[in-house]
Design a protein around this nucleic acid. Structure first.
Lengths: 215, 215
DNA sequence: AGCAACTAACTAACCAGTTAGCAAAACAGT
DNA sequence: ACTGTTTTGCTAACTGGTTAGTTAGTTGCT
């Protein structure tokens, strides 16, 4: 690795720390340079601007995510467990993702939307083949899985609550919750809302977002 | 309402919009003043600083939340539905909450931790009385409920994915997911994850929610 | 007059991005 | 091997626009 490449890496590492702590608006380029032990100008030589640097950092680490967590269509609970492990092991990356969601900076929709659609399609397959309960919309199950598996990240609004069960307990609960949600259940009596699934195909979009208006 | 009070209100409204869009670091005091149609200095007269203004806005709206969504211990699915409705109707407040989680600004732990503990305690009661399935830790159920019910807010990392089912479907799915998670299931046969439940309790733990035990 | 509500203009610090140039290594010609 | 030149990697110091926060003063109502 050339000296320049090594410096580039140090900048990316320092930037990850800075951005995940302060977001784009709160991040300071001088601070990144200091953490990386290099001159500020190098940041502008290697990465054009603060925003581009953020995008680069985010891209790199989201690519990591896809590699470390290949989607497992026929073991959704197992996948949820892996997502939980990842979120627990890498809170910085969850924070990075959270920042990029709030600040609308960094448009990298292509890959993420794609993988979301892939997952939903795989779940829909599972439903047709009877491996996955058809009582929920595929997109609902995918989003719910991710939401539950990452809910305990300090990056998310409800992950911060003081006292939580031990990590092993949490992980076990996450896996079992997904098991419960996706496993086909016999009933029919218990599940009164199968018609909702028929509605799933985005019909006439209602003007008012609040569907349940019975406050 | 005095003229001064009216101005104060306009500032708070403008500040909600600004902070929920840009966060604290990204917010501009001049922009808030312009939106409120008042002089910037008034902001410093009525609220000391940008940070204090943010805290004030957050406090006010979180207080609203508690009023609008009283916790319903014996109808958790119904409560989840209300939370979903609220999150759908008030994305700005979800964003505000998300910002305040990421930026560690604004410490208002007292009320939120309190209500979290209250909810968990109520769930634990429900488990003891057999109304709620004892298979999950109470804290797990509370956090999961909130995570699922708010997962489709654009403020959260996985709420942004392109195609979602229609709002009514989503709401119905949310309510039914919580129903599935909290309803006592007769199982034994239905739930092959019972051994994981044994692991969960970190010891011989027959009836009491072993899951919730260890912190 | 006196007070409450408000304003215009200012200040000092900050911060993304730039300029101009240094030092050493690689390279070429002789 | 020696010298001049170019390239690579880097740095110190600067710039100009922006921004939180301040000061000193105005307006209008009682």
């Amino acid at each position: 690795m050339s000296k320049a490449e090594a410096t580039r890496e140090r900048i990316l590492d320092a930037a990850l720390e800075e951005f995940s702590t302060f977001g784009v608006a709160g991040a300071r380029v001088d601070r990144i340079a200091r953490k990386a032990g290099c001159n500020k100008n190098l940041i502008y030589i290697y990465f054009e601007s603060k925003e581009k640097l953020f995008t680069t950092v985010l891209r790199r680490h989201l690519a990591d995510v896809d590699l470390q967590m290949p989607f497992m269509p026929d073991d959704l609970p197992g996948f949820a467990g892996k997502v939980y492990d990842f979120a627990t092991a890498h809170p910085e990356i969850l924070r990075l993702l959270a920042w990029s969601t709030l600040e609308q900076s960094a448009q990298l929709p292509a890959t993420r939307e794609e993988s979301f659609r892939d997952m939903a399609a795989a779940v829909a397959d599972g439903q047709r083949e009877g491996r996955v309960d058809p009582g929920f919309a595929p997109e609902f199950l995918v989003t719910t899985l991710m939401a539950i598996a990452t809910a305990w990240s300090p990056a998310l609004p409800f992950g911060t609550s003081t006292r939580h069960p031990a990590p092993e307990v949490l992980r076990d609960n996450v896996v079992r919750a997904i098991t419960l949600l996706v496993r086909p259940h016999v009933d029919g009596a218990a599940n009164d809302a199968d018609q909702s699934f028929a509605v799933t195909g985005s019909g006439p979009e209602p003007e008012t977002p609040g569907a349940g208006e019975r406050l």
